[in-house]
Nucleic acid binder design. Structure first.
Length: 605
DNA sequence: CGGGTTTGACCCGCGC
DNA sequence: GCGCGGGTCAAACCCG
């Protein structure tokens, strides 16, 4: 791959708030654009907020027209030099603002990449670079003294320029931080809103089901993106956007009042969190009861929790509860680093796989219902399969949020599709057909029983893994993948006619490649046998699902090219390598640093 | 001693 | 009803 990418981070991006597409409210910050190379586009998830990927143009003029660049944010982090600077970066990103040499950065073959990397490595190289552009006026005619003076002047200018750049860099960092923070808050609020929405659904169940069914039928008949978007909008009425507040606790308490089954009583009576009790023993958090359980891991207990008159509600909650995002990535490490802290609570041998499956619980916050399973693929033990379920009930660090956004986006799609219909299996397909017609490669959405699961396969570097996935689908006797022409064509920049959400999902589908299918497989033993790609030096990555994070679907709206996907896989997977160094304790800084270092050394395709 | 891991037991759903 | 398999619990253990 010798072409680079222009990645634009735009706080006003329509993809950032798919729910609010009808009345988007730009964030107060001015648009922030970030450009970096394809090799580093994998860094975008770290940002944790929406990005628009713009394919590099053939000419720099075109590129300039396609971007509003306020500065360059350098995501490169040479493993030899990144540690200190990256650590100091509030967003764990190594940034350089170099407006004067922007053009050089926006380009893109291996050679240029390397040279730019060098330019980025420090003041000396930077100044040398600038000097090479400006000092050519000295042709030897002037005297030595004048020469010196000129050089001194140049040096002073460069120093001033550097100061200015640093200042801008700082501003950019602040902006990034602010935007990221806002986005995180929005995500959390959205989750709360969607939970509340779910709670209120039973009241108008019957009529709503009819509407949903009608919508599904319409989608079948090719209504397309707009209908899909409506479906998502329905989940979050615009009128509620303003009251975005922390409804999680309310939802939980509301849910709690409905717990009436013995199972629930048992849970209610028990210790509510997986924390040390007075006896120093671990107890499982059940604070949210059915509500939060809906994000929990235990499908076994779900069906008991809902009385018959709440059948649809129970289906919805069950679906939400069961929805999972599975990430396949190559890693030698026992667990991939995803920015969250996990506590192992069990391990079991799964049938059909000689490798044990480990069970983890998120310990970043008390009562966080998110859990994950980690297991090596039976077919290829270099592949680590991490399956997430649940929604974090706490703010996520940037690194974790990035991962979570990606996976949660996929999960949200699935859930959004199934939540609005009694047929939790069919809708995701409809959704996929409608919004991800051009989706390619590495992800599989398994919407069927037992759990609707999105599988992000980061182990393939196939330029067109779709074929592979299709074959797998066939092998699994799953529904064929539908590919419909997208309004904007294959080019993600041509999404003008498409809904923002559709665009987001389309992009997302391209990110790591989302694919929709209906297999029953979860976990390694269920993961389709993907042959290792020898030309890809990568390892695993990961993420976490959050249910109502449909907004994060936009966050994941990133790439639109299989090659990008491959690189993303490679970069993310390298995080996992870093995870080992972290001793499985996800340290954000080191995580990012590792990622950055691996990125900088990524050889390319 | 606190926090995390290990591991056998247990619970539950599902298929036969 | 029974067995199987997935998921969880929790006592015991380990480690810094």
């Amino acid at each position: 791959m010798d072409k680079g990418w222009g990645l634009t981070l735009d706080s006003t991006s329509s993809t950032s708030l798919p729910f609010f597409s009808s009345k988007q409210q730009p964030l107060p910050q001015p648009p922030l654009s970030v450009n970096f190379f394809s090799k580093d586009t994998t860094m975008f998830p770290v940002l944790g907020f929406p990005v628009n990927l713009t394919r590099p143009t053939n000419t720099e003029e075109e590129g300039a027209q396609n971007r509003m660049v306020v500065g360059e944010v350098d995501f490169f982090s040479d493993k030899n030099k990144s540690s200190s600077s990256a650590r100091h970066d509030h967003n764990h990103l190594h940034q350089h603002v170099k407006p004067t040499i922007k053009k050089e950065l926006v380009c893109v073959d291996e050679k240029t990449y390397n040279s730019n990397l060098q330019v980025n490595t420090g003041l000396q190289l930077l100044t040398a670079n600038i000097g090479s552009d400006q000092s050519t006026v000295d042709d030897g005619v002037t005297s030595e003294a004048e020469d010196k003076q000129a050089k001194n002047t140049e040096l002073a200018q460069m120093q001033m320029e550097l100061q200015r750049m640093n200042s801008e860099n700082q501003k950019l960092k602040e902006m990034l931080s602010h935007v990221s923070g806002n986005y995180t808050a929005l995500q959390m609020h959205l989750v709360a809103l969607m939970q509340q929405q779910q709670l209120e659904k039973p009241r108008s169940e019957s009529t709503e089901n009819e509407v949903v069914q009608k919508k599904a039928e319409e989608k079948i008949h090719g209504i397309g993106g707009e209908m899909v978007q409506r479906q998502f909008l329905d989940l979050v009425p615009s009128g509620r956007v303003a009251e975005v507040d922390d409804h999680v606790s309310n939802s939980s308490s509301d849910e709690r009042t409905r717990s009436s089954t013995p199972q629930n009583n048992k849970i209610e009576a028990g210790t509510r969190d997986y924390v040390r009790n007075t006896n120093g023993k671990n107890e499982l958090a059940r604070e949210e009861s059915p509500g939060s359980e809906s994000q929990g891991w235990g499908p076994n207990k779900l069906q008991k929790m809902n009385p018959p008159n709440l059948m649809d509600q129970s289906n919805i909650e069950a679906t939400m509860r069961k929805a999972r995002v599975s990430v396949r990535a190559r890693s030698e490490a026992p667990m991939i680093s995803d920015g969250c802290q996990w506590r192992k609570y069990g391990q079991k041998m799964a049938k059909g796989n000689p490798c044990p499956r480990a069970y983890y619980r998120c310990t970043m916050a008390v009562g966080c219902p998110v859990r994950k399973q980690v297991q090596r693929c039976a077919e290829d033990r270099t592949i680590l399969v991490t399956t997430y379920e649940g929604t974090h009930n706490h703010p996520l660090p940037p690194a974790a949020m990035a991962m979570a956004s990606t996976t949660s986006a996929a999960a949200s799609m699935l859930l959004s599709g199934s939540m609005t219909s009694a047929d939790g299996i069919m809708n995701p397909n409809l959704l996929s057909r409608a919004i991800l017609p051009c989706s390619s490669n590495m992800a599989t959405l398994s919407a069927s029983a037992p759990f609707p699961t999105v599988t992000l396969d980061l182990t393939t570097n196939d330029p067109n893994p779709l074929e592979l996935q299709r074959n797998q689908l066939h092998q699994n006797h799953t529904a064929p993948l539908f590919q419909l022409p997208f309004p904007g064509g294959q080019n993600p920049q041509n999404f003008g006619a498409a809904t923002p959400f559709a665009q987001a999902l389309y992009n997302q589908s391209k990110f790591s490649g989302l694919q929709f299918s209906q297999d029953h497989q979860v976990g390694s033993s269920q993961v389709p046998p993907v042959a290792p790609r020898p030309n890809l030096q990568q390892q695993p990555s990961q993420q976490q699902p959050s249910l109502a994070d449909t907004v994060s679907a936009a966050t994941a709206a990133i790439t639109a090219d299989p090659n990008f996907t491959a690189m993303l896989a490679a970069a993310i997977s390298s995080i996992i390598g870093g995870a080992q160094a972290n001793n499985n304790n996800d340290n954000n800084n080191s995580n990012i640093n590792n990622m950055a270092s691996k990125l900088s050394s990524f050889p390319g395709n």
